[in-house]
Design a protein around this nucleic acid. Structure first.
Length: 495
RNA sequence: GUCCCCAUCGUCUAGCGGUUAGGACAUCGCCCUUUCAAGGCGGUAACACGGGUUCGAGUCCCGUUGGGGGCACCA
């Protein structure tokens, strides 16, 4: 890539940043980074009725969370600004007037009704060409000017050159795509209300901003020949296109609200790690080598390439995302885990003082992290795992089913009594996992019961649940006195 | 309707004329184990269909079927 790569992500602030948009942003960003290029963020808000400032902020926030830093765009500025289309209106007008003056575009006075009638007629006579019938294309220039000056409403249409042959697009992912010349339409570039249409504004901007590669969704592929017409009329070089396939829901249908979470912020709030999320999304339609699945963002930023983008539409698989998130969590050091996930979760649950300096025993915290980390798939799991540990003998919530299955049975009281005695021999300063385990270890034989039954009973007594992290570790963290008190309390539930 | 795109395990994909069709998620089994995780080992599972081209086709060509997208004074 010898030229200076300039790419852009240009979302419309008509909604939140969704998964598909996020992936497009990631690809653009990664491509720029891998080629020492410039990544531009532009807000395509030419549709004032659906665009909102609030959505723009949501998108910027999502981009920051994803860690996709832009070199030019809102808040950082740049030489090619401004970076919101509503602030570039004069540029579009200027460009349209130039095309008008050069005879590369013309005013169209057709009313919506006339156009609709033409469309219907074309459909009825099964005309292979269903586009604009070019009624106004040959109105003499002076007549057109007179009607415009008289205040007659008009749109501006691009004039597809008579001799323009087929439009051949060389797409970086699809290869050569040909659109027949007869399909080309004199489409509207300026509305009668004086605003530019998307296909025009985008090209004017991309040309003005020197965009070299347009990486965007497949849904724009059919628009591309139209846009090529604009580039040519403008006399601007046509960029390289890379059309990436859509992301589908688990049912193979286009991703929508009914597939559950579709916006980036929902994933952020659900407790996914930005790194894992970006890694997962980058692999939806791209591969490094077909083998590697864990791809840290710095590798993505150095190894991303257009030629390894897949043509297939991809189905979003939440299960794999979950796995990847757990993978990233597990790869964290204990300290990282404590700082980024454990502490914040505990503080949020009110289990810990907001001031991290208060009441945190480093060694204790490290042991907690060691048992919580491998059990955490999502940040949201932490509170549930920690709850029994942070409870007290009186506040601990006993799970009904667990009590019924593991505690409220004949002979269980005997187990608790034996456990209390065994643990009672352990001095407070020797209350550690290995010694707790050792103290409990002879019980099954002594009581002539299965290991499982014995430990189940103690587990439910101490943790309130049949499921918990390893007993010894857990009991060490809970502390001697509280464990004894819990067993005491549980004794009343056992028979 | 018309134009364009797409087609390998359930899912994401590797493959770029000769492979026991590879990896990952999911799933199943085993090991570890006092429960749950984590980890280790192993299994099930795919070239949509039909024609060509070729000594040889998952790979190239055509068609069919099936999905998706565009065809607006929406982006």
């Amino acid at each position: 890539m010898s030229q200076n790569v300039r790419v852009r992500f240009a979302p419309s602030p008509t909604g939140k940043l969704h998964i598909g948009g996020a992936r497009t942003a990631i690809y653009n960003w990664a491509f720029a980074r891998a080629n020492g290029g410039t990544f531009i963020l532009r807000i395509d808000d030419t549709d004032p009725t659906r665009s909102t400032e609030e959505n723009t902020q949501i998108i910027l926030r999502a981009m920051r969370w994803l860690g996709l830093d832009w070199d030019e765009g809102p808040e950082v500025g740049g030489a090619a600004g401004p970076y919101a289309q509503t602030e570039r209106l004069p540029l579009y007008r200027e460009a349209a007037e130039r095309l008008l003056a050069e005879g590369k575009a013309y005013p169209c006075f057709c009313t919506p009704e006339e156009l609709e009638a033409d469309r219907r007629a074309a459909k009825e006579r099964k005309d292979p060409f269903q586009g604009y019938q070019r009624r106004c294309r040959n109105i003499p220039a002076d007549e057109a000017r007179a009607r415009m000056e008289a205040g007659e409403p008009y749109t501006i249409r691009i004039k597809v050159p008579e001799d323009r042959g087929d439009v051949v697009i060389n797409d970086a992912v699809h290869g050569t795509v040909t659109f027949a010349a007869k399909e080309l339409d004199d489409f509207v570039i300026f509305r009668s209300d004086g605003t530019p249409t998307y296909n025009f504004a985008t090209v004017v901007d991309d040309a003005a901003m020197g965009i070299t590669h347009v990486i965007r969704g497949d849904d724009h592929l059919s628009n591309t020949p139209r846009q090529v017409m604009v580039y040519e009329a403008l006399g601007a070089p046509v960029p390289v296109f890379a059309h990436i396939s859509m992301i589908l829901g688990t049912d193979g249908k286009k991703l929508s609200k009914r597939h559950g979470a579709t916006s980036v912020e929902e994933y952020r709030d659900a407790g996914y790690l930005s790194d894992a999320f970006v890694n997962y999304l980058s692999l939806l339609g791209w591969s490094l080598d077909g083998e590697t699945t864990i791809i840290p963002r710095d590798v993505l930023a150095s190894r991303f390439s257009l030629d390894r983008i897949s043509k297939n539409p991809a189905t979003f698989d939440p299960k794999k995302l979950d796995w990847m998130n757990a993978e990233y969590i597990n790869a964290m050091t204990n300290d990282e885990f404590i700082e980024k996930l454990l502490l914040p979760a505990l503080v949020q649950q009110g289990l810990m003082d907001a001031d991290p300096a208060v009441g945190v025993d480093g060694a204790w915290m490290d042991k907690l992290a060691a048992i919580v980390k491998p059990r955490t798939k999502l940040a949201g799991d932490i509170a549930g795992i920690c709850a029994p540990i942070f409870a007290t003998a009186s506040s601990l919530v006993y799970d009904e089913k667990s009590v019924a299955k593991g505690l409220a049975k004949d002979g269980m009281g005997t187990i608790l009594d034996a456990a209390r005695v065994a643990l009672g021999t352990l001095p407070a300063d020797e209350w550690e996992a290995a010694k707790i385990d050792a103290a409990l270890e002879p019980l099954p034989d002594a009581l002539e019961l299965k290991k499982r039954v014995v430990f189940q009973a103690v587990r439910v007594a101490v943790c309130g649940n049949l499921v918990s992290p390893p007993l010894g570790e857990t009991m060490e963290l809970i502390g001697r006195d509280d464990c004894m008190a819990r067993i005491e309390r549980a004794r009343t539930m056992a028979l």
